[in-house]
């Protein structure tokens, strides 16, 4: 990808409103970080989709692998005591 004449690939994250998480919305090519930010604005926020942007070089993303999905996330599968509904609270106590 880095040899592409269109520049390297970047991942784009948009924050819709202040206080909300940044959400991945797509990717693009750009030669440097300023251009990546400008291209992200032109490509992904033409209709007020966001008020803040992150651009990250795609090569910097580390991802889990789908083949290992079962084993990688398995540790949390049988731990129902991590959820609030696992616990009995007497009715008289009210909302907790």
């Amino acid at each position: 990808m880095s040899n592409d004449s269109q520049g390297p690939m970047w991942e784009v994250f948009v924050q819709k409103k202040a206080g909300q998480p940044f959400v991945h919305c797509g990717n693009l090519h750009a030669y440097d970080k300023e251009m990546a930010l400008q291209n992200a604005r032109d490509l992904y926020t033409r209709r007020g989709e966001g008020m803040s942007l992150w651009v990250v070089p795609s090569a910097a993303i580390v991802a889990s692998s789908p083949e290992d999905m079962g084993s990688f996330f398995e540790p949390s599968n049988d731990k129902i005591y991590r959820h609030p509904t696992f616990y009995q609270i007497p009715d008289g106590v009210g909302h907790m």
């Binding site: 970080k33 070089p57 090569a59």
Partner: peptide
């Protein structure tokens, strides 16, 4: 434009591409 942008990115000497 592509050539200039490539050279400019190199000159900035910040390797965002991480091979």
């Amino acid at each position: 434009v592509r050539e200039a942008a490539t050279v400019y990115a190199k000159k900035q000497n910040e390797n965002y591409e991480a091979a």
